[in-house]
Simulated assay, not measured.
Amino acid sequence: MRRLFPVTDQTSADRAATAPPSPGPDGDREWTFDELAEAYAYPPLAAGAVWLRGNMVATLDGAAQHGGRSQAISSAADMRIFGVLRALADVVVVGAETVRREGYRPARARAAFAQRRAAAGQAPAPAIAVLTASLDLDFSAPLFTSPLVPTLVLTGAAAPSERVRAASKAGAEVVIAGEGPGADPARAVSALAERGHRRLLTEGGPRLLGQFVAGGVLDELCLTVAPLLTAGHAQRIADGPELPVPARFEPVSLLTEGGFLFCRYARADAPWISRDQG
Protein backbone atom coordinates (compact mmCIF):
# COMPACT_ATOMS: atom_id res chain seq x y z
CA MET A 1 0.00 0.00 0.00
CA ARG A 2 1.25 3.47 -0.90
CA ARG A 3 -0.28 6.85 -0.23
CA LEU A 4 -0.39 9.14 -3.26
CA PHE A 5 -2.38 11.95 -1.63
CA PRO A 6 -2.05 13.93 0.57
CA VAL A 7 1.63 14.28 -0.27
CA THR A 8 4.01 13.54 2.56
CA ASP A 9 5.73 16.94 2.50
CA GLN A 10 2.60 18.65 3.81
CA THR A 11 3.05 20.15 7.24
CA SER A 12 1.10 18.74 10.16
CA ALA A 13 -0.98 21.93 10.21
CA ASP A 14 -1.81 21.54 6.51
CA ARG A 15 -2.92 17.94 6.97
CA ALA A 16 -5.03 18.80 10.01
CA ALA A 17 -6.75 21.52 8.02
CA THR A 18 -7.77 19.24 5.15
CA ALA A 19 -8.55 15.80 6.55
CA PRO A 20 -8.62 13.48 9.54
CA PRO A 21 -5.29 11.96 10.65
CA SER A 22 -3.36 9.87 8.13
CA PRO A 23 -0.79 7.18 8.95
CA GLY A 24 2.78 8.36 9.14
CA PRO A 25 5.04 5.92 7.30
CA ASP A 26 4.41 5.55 3.58
CA GLY A 27 5.73 2.81 1.38
CA ASP A 28 4.75 -0.06 -0.86
CA ARG A 29 3.86 -2.52 1.90
CA GLU A 30 0.80 -3.91 3.64
CA TRP A 31 -0.46 -1.36 6.13
CA THR A 32 -1.56 -2.42 9.58
CA PHE A 33 -5.20 -2.24 10.63
CA ASP A 34 -4.32 0.68 12.91
CA GLU A 35 -2.78 2.64 10.02
CA LEU A 36 -5.82 2.00 7.84
CA ALA A 37 -8.12 2.95 10.71
CA GLU A 38 -6.33 6.29 11.06
CA ALA A 39 -6.44 6.88 7.31
CA TYR A 40 -10.21 6.28 7.26
CA ALA A 41 -11.16 7.78 10.63
CA TYR A 42 -14.54 9.48 10.75
CA PRO A 43 -14.30 13.25 11.22
CA PRO A 44 -15.08 14.64 14.68
CA LEU A 45 -18.84 15.08 15.00
CA ALA A 46 -20.65 17.86 16.82
CA ALA A 47 -23.40 16.85 19.24
CA GLY A 48 -26.29 15.34 17.29
CA ALA A 49 -24.42 15.34 13.97
CA VAL A 50 -24.28 12.27 11.74
CA TRP A 51 -21.88 11.26 8.94
CA LEU A 52 -22.92 8.95 6.09
CA ARG A 53 -20.06 7.29 4.23
CA GLY A 54 -20.45 5.18 1.10
CA ASN A 55 -18.05 2.41 0.10
CA MET A 56 -18.14 1.07 -3.45
CA VAL A 57 -15.89 -0.58 -6.03
CA ALA A 58 -15.95 0.07 -9.78
CA THR A 59 -13.99 -0.98 -12.84
CA LEU A 60 -12.17 1.43 -15.15
CA ASP A 61 -15.23 1.47 -17.40
CA GLY A 62 -17.58 2.20 -14.52
CA ALA A 63 -19.10 -1.21 -13.76
CA ALA A 64 -20.09 -1.74 -10.13
CA GLN A 65 -20.41 -5.51 -10.57
CA HIS A 66 -19.37 -8.39 -12.78
CA GLY A 67 -21.64 -11.37 -13.10
CA GLY A 68 -24.05 -9.65 -10.74
CA ARG A 69 -21.63 -9.42 -7.82
CA SER A 70 -19.02 -6.94 -6.64
CA GLN A 71 -16.59 -9.60 -5.35
CA ALA A 72 -15.39 -10.34 -8.88
CA ILE A 73 -13.87 -6.85 -9.23
CA SER A 74 -12.45 -6.61 -5.70
CA SER A 75 -9.00 -7.46 -4.32
CA ALA A 76 -7.38 -8.51 -1.05
CA ALA A 77 -6.47 -4.88 -0.24
CA ASP A 78 -10.01 -3.75 -1.10
CA MET A 79 -11.40 -6.35 1.30
CA ARG A 80 -9.02 -5.20 4.07
CA ILE A 81 -10.31 -1.65 3.66
CA PHE A 82 -13.88 -3.00 3.48
CA GLY A 83 -13.33 -4.66 6.87
CA VAL A 84 -11.76 -1.55 8.39
CA LEU A 85 -14.63 0.68 7.25
CA ARG A 86 -17.08 -1.73 8.84
CA ALA A 87 -15.06 -1.81 12.05
CA LEU A 88 -15.21 1.99 12.31
CA ALA A 89 -18.98 2.29 11.72
CA ASP A 90 -21.88 2.28 14.17
CA VAL A 91 -24.17 0.77 11.54
CA VAL A 92 -23.86 -0.63 8.02
CA VAL A 93 -26.77 0.36 5.77
CA VAL A 94 -27.63 -1.89 2.80
CA GLY A 95 -30.47 -2.41 0.35
CA ALA A 96 -32.59 -5.54 0.32
CA GLU A 97 -31.41 -6.54 -3.17
CA THR A 98 -27.79 -6.44 -2.01
CA VAL A 99 -28.68 -8.57 1.02
CA ARG A 100 -30.26 -11.17 -1.24
CA ARG A 101 -27.60 -11.10 -3.96
CA GLU A 102 -24.49 -10.99 -1.76
CA GLY A 103 -25.77 -13.35 0.96
CA TYR A 104 -25.26 -10.81 3.75
CA ARG A 105 -24.34 -12.07 7.19
CA PRO A 106 -24.11 -10.20 10.51
CA ALA A 107 -21.05 -8.06 11.15
CA ARG A 108 -18.61 -9.77 13.50
CA ALA A 109 -16.60 -8.42 16.39
CA ARG A 110 -12.92 -8.13 15.55
CA ALA A 111 -10.30 -8.26 18.27
CA ALA A 112 -8.05 -5.81 16.41
CA PHE A 113 -10.71 -3.09 16.80
CA ALA A 114 -12.18 -3.99 20.19
CA GLN A 115 -10.28 -1.33 22.15
CA ARG A 116 -10.92 1.35 19.53
CA ARG A 117 -14.67 0.63 19.47
CA ALA A 118 -14.91 0.52 23.26
CA ALA A 119 -13.13 3.88 23.54
CA ALA A 120 -15.61 5.37 21.05
CA GLY A 121 -18.58 4.01 23.01
CA GLN A 122 -19.54 1.64 20.19
CA ALA A 123 -21.02 -1.86 20.37
CA PRO A 124 -18.56 -4.74 19.74
CA ALA A 125 -19.71 -4.87 16.12
CA PRO A 126 -21.76 -2.57 13.88
CA ALA A 127 -25.44 -3.22 13.41
CA ILE A 128 -26.75 -4.01 9.93
CA ALA A 129 -29.67 -1.88 8.73
CA VAL A 130 -31.62 -3.08 5.68
CA LEU A 131 -33.70 -0.62 3.65
CA THR A 132 -36.64 -2.39 2.05
CA ALA A 133 -40.14 -1.63 0.82
CA SER A 134 -41.38 -5.19 0.29
CA LEU A 135 -39.53 -6.85 3.21
CA ASP A 136 -38.93 -9.75 0.82
CA LEU A 137 -36.13 -11.15 2.94
CA ASP A 138 -35.23 -14.53 4.40
CA PHE A 139 -35.87 -13.94 8.08
CA SER A 140 -34.49 -17.39 8.91
CA ALA A 141 -31.02 -16.32 7.70
CA PRO A 142 -28.19 -15.65 10.20
CA LEU A 143 -28.46 -11.91 9.50
CA PHE A 144 -31.71 -11.98 11.48
CA THR A 145 -31.39 -15.05 13.72
CA SER A 146 -27.86 -14.70 15.11
CA PRO A 147 -26.49 -11.14 14.88
CA LEU A 148 -24.22 -9.86 17.62
CA VAL A 149 -26.21 -6.60 17.46
CA PRO A 150 -29.90 -6.80 16.42
CA THR A 151 -30.47 -6.16 12.71
CA LEU A 152 -32.63 -3.17 11.82
CA VAL A 153 -35.20 -3.15 9.02
CA LEU A 154 -35.94 0.35 7.70
CA THR A 155 -39.19 0.59 5.79
CA GLY A 156 -42.28 2.74 5.28
CA ALA A 157 -45.65 2.95 7.00
CA ALA A 158 -47.35 1.29 4.01
CA ALA A 159 -45.05 -1.78 4.01
CA PRO A 160 -46.83 -5.19 4.01
CA SER A 161 -48.00 -5.70 7.61
CA GLU A 162 -47.52 -9.48 7.54
CA ARG A 163 -43.86 -9.03 6.51
CA VAL A 164 -43.37 -6.43 9.23
CA ARG A 165 -44.68 -8.94 11.78
CA ALA A 166 -42.38 -11.63 10.37
CA ALA A 167 -39.37 -9.34 10.70
CA SER A 168 -40.22 -8.49 14.30
CA LYS A 169 -40.83 -12.15 15.15
CA ALA A 170 -37.39 -13.01 13.75
CA GLY A 171 -35.78 -10.53 16.17
CA ALA A 172 -35.21 -7.58 13.83
CA GLU A 173 -35.96 -4.04 14.96
CA VAL A 174 -38.41 -2.59 12.44
CA VAL A 175 -38.01 1.18 11.98
CA ILE A 176 -40.68 3.16 10.11
CA ALA A 177 -38.92 5.94 8.20
CA GLY A 178 -41.36 6.91 5.47
CA GLU A 179 -45.04 7.35 4.69
CA GLY A 180 -45.13 5.08 1.65
CA PRO A 181 -44.06 1.43 1.29
CA GLY A 182 -40.35 2.25 1.58
CA ALA A 183 -38.06 4.34 3.74
CA ASP A 184 -37.20 7.92 2.82
CA PRO A 185 -33.38 8.26 2.69
CA ALA A 186 -33.20 11.42 4.82
CA ARG A 187 -35.65 10.04 7.38
CA ALA A 188 -33.73 6.76 7.49
CA VAL A 189 -30.52 8.64 8.36
CA SER A 190 -32.33 10.64 11.05
CA ALA A 191 -33.94 7.50 12.49
CA LEU A 192 -30.56 5.79 12.79
CA ALA A 193 -29.05 8.88 14.44
CA GLU A 194 -31.90 8.93 16.96
CA ARG A 195 -30.87 5.39 17.93
CA GLY A 196 -27.29 6.50 18.57
CA HIS A 197 -25.92 5.43 15.17
CA ARG A 198 -24.02 8.53 14.07
CA ARG A 199 -21.19 6.97 12.05
CA LEU A 200 -23.01 5.44 9.10
CA LEU A 201 -21.62 3.28 6.31
CA THR A 202 -23.52 2.18 3.21
CA GLU A 203 -22.08 -0.60 1.06
CA GLY A 204 -24.77 -0.55 -1.59
CA GLY A 205 -26.20 -1.48 -3.75
CA PRO A 206 -26.21 1.12 -6.50
CA ARG A 207 -29.92 1.88 -6.13
CA LEU A 208 -29.56 2.62 -2.44
CA LEU A 209 -26.49 4.80 -2.98
CA GLY A 210 -28.38 6.61 -5.73
CA GLN A 211 -31.21 7.34 -3.28
CA PHE A 212 -28.79 8.75 -0.71
CA VAL A 213 -27.12 10.92 -3.36
CA ALA A 214 -30.49 12.17 -4.63
CA GLY A 215 -31.59 12.84 -1.05
CA GLY A 216 -28.51 14.99 -0.42
CA VAL A 217 -27.47 13.02 2.66
CA LEU A 218 -24.23 11.38 1.47
CA ASP A 219 -21.24 13.01 3.20
CA GLU A 220 -18.38 10.88 1.90
CA LEU A 221 -17.54 8.33 -0.77
CA CYS A 222 -14.80 5.73 -0.50
CA LEU A 223 -14.37 4.41 -4.03
CA THR A 224 -12.08 1.57 -5.07
CA VAL A 225 -11.13 1.79 -8.75
CA ALA A 226 -10.21 -1.67 -10.04
CA PRO A 227 -7.71 -1.90 -12.95
CA LEU A 228 -10.24 -3.96 -14.92
CA LEU A 229 -12.40 -3.54 -18.02
CA THR A 230 -15.63 -5.51 -18.22
CA ALA A 231 -17.89 -3.85 -20.85
CA GLY A 232 -21.39 -5.31 -20.59
CA HIS A 233 -24.34 -3.54 -19.01
CA ALA A 234 -23.59 -3.58 -15.28
CA GLN A 235 -24.90 -0.77 -13.09
CA ARG A 236 -22.83 2.24 -12.09
CA ILE A 237 -22.08 2.66 -8.38
CA ALA A 238 -25.07 5.02 -8.00
CA ASP A 239 -28.32 4.35 -9.85
CA GLY A 240 -31.12 6.83 -9.22
CA PRO A 241 -32.69 10.12 -10.25
CA GLU A 242 -30.33 12.65 -11.79
CA LEU A 243 -29.46 15.65 -9.64
CA PRO A 244 -30.41 19.07 -11.06
CA VAL A 245 -26.90 20.23 -10.19
CA PRO A 246 -24.08 17.69 -9.64
CA ALA A 247 -22.91 17.46 -6.03
CA ARG A 248 -19.29 18.57 -5.59
CA PHE A 249 -16.93 16.39 -3.53
CA GLU A 250 -13.27 17.03 -2.69
CA PRO A 251 -10.41 14.48 -2.41
CA VAL A 252 -9.35 13.50 1.11
CA SER A 253 -6.87 10.72 0.36
CA LEU A 254 -5.66 8.42 -2.41
CA LEU A 255 -3.97 5.08 -1.76
CA THR A 256 -2.79 2.41 -4.18
CA GLU A 257 -1.88 -1.26 -4.07
CA GLY A 258 -1.62 -3.85 -6.84
CA GLY A 259 -2.89 -1.44 -9.47
CA PHE A 260 -6.04 -0.65 -7.47
CA LEU A 261 -6.78 2.94 -6.43
CA PHE A 262 -8.49 3.61 -3.11
CA CYS A 263 -10.09 7.04 -3.29
CA ARG A 264 -11.68 8.94 -0.42
CA TYR A 265 -13.84 11.98 -1.18
CA ALA A 266 -15.89 14.22 1.14
CA ARG A 267 -18.57 16.73 0.26
CA ALA A 268 -17.04 20.06 -0.61
CA ASP A 269 -18.59 21.91 2.34
CA ALA A 270 -17.45 19.36 4.95
CA PRO A 271 -16.38 21.35 8.05
CA TRP A 272 -13.43 19.18 9.02
CA ILE A 273 -12.09 21.60 11.64
CA SER A 274 -15.14 23.40 12.98
CA ARG A 275 -16.80 20.32 14.42
CA ASP A 276 -16.27 19.49 18.07
CA GLN A 277 -15.33 15.96 19.05
CA GLY A 278 -18.47 13.87 19.52
Rank of each mutant, 00 (worst) to 15 (best):
P160C: 13
F144T: 14
P44Q: 05
L45S: 03
F113Q: 05
R105N: 01
G83V: 01
Q115W: 07
A64C: 11
P124N: 10
A58P: 07
P160A: 14
R110H: 06
A77Y: 09
A111Y: 08
L85A: 04
A107I: 05
S74Y: 04
V149E: 07
R69D: 10
G83F: 01
S75G: 10
A157Y: 04
A125T: 12
A120K: 05
R165M: 14
M56H: 14
E35Y: 02
Y104G: 01
M79W: 09
L60W: 06
G103L: 10
L137I: 13
P44D: 03
L36Q: 02
R108C: 06
R108W: 02
G95N: 00
L85Q: 03
Q122R: 12
T132K: 14
V94C: 06
I73T: 13
V149W: 03
V164I: 15
G156I: 15
A107P: 00
A141N: 05
T151P: 01
A96Q: 08
A129H: 09
S168D: 07
I81Q: 04
S140C: 05
A129Y: 01
A127C: 13
P43Y: 00
A119N: 10
G62T: 08
A119R: 12
V57R: 12
S70A: 11
G103S: 09
S161D: 03
R100I: 00
Y104S: 03
A129I: 05
V164R: 13
V92R: 01
Y40V: 00
I81A: 02
G54P: 01
A72V: 14
I73M: 14
K169V: 02
G68S: 05
A123H: 12
G62S: 08
V92T: 02
G156R: 15
P160I: 14
D90I: 08
A133P: 11
S70E: 04
S161N: 03
V174Y: 07
S146R: 15
V175K: 03
F144S: 13
G83R: 15
V94S: 04
A177T: 09
R69I: 11
V99H: 05
I128K: 07
A46S: 13
F113E: 02
T132E: 06
A157G: 10
G171M: 07
E173P: 02
I176D: 07
G67C: 10
F113R: 05
E102P: 07
A172T: 04
L52R: 04
A89W: 00
R80G: 06
F113D: 02
A114E: 09
A47E: 14
V92C: 02
G83C: 07
S140T: 15
V130S: 03
F139N: 09
A49N: 10
V153L: 13
A39H: 05
G68N: 05
V92I: 06
S74F: 04
I81P: 02
V99I: 05
A133N: 12
A159L: 11
T59D: 03
A125E: 06
L137R: 14
P124G: 11
A72M: 12
G103W: 05
A167D: 00
R116G: 02
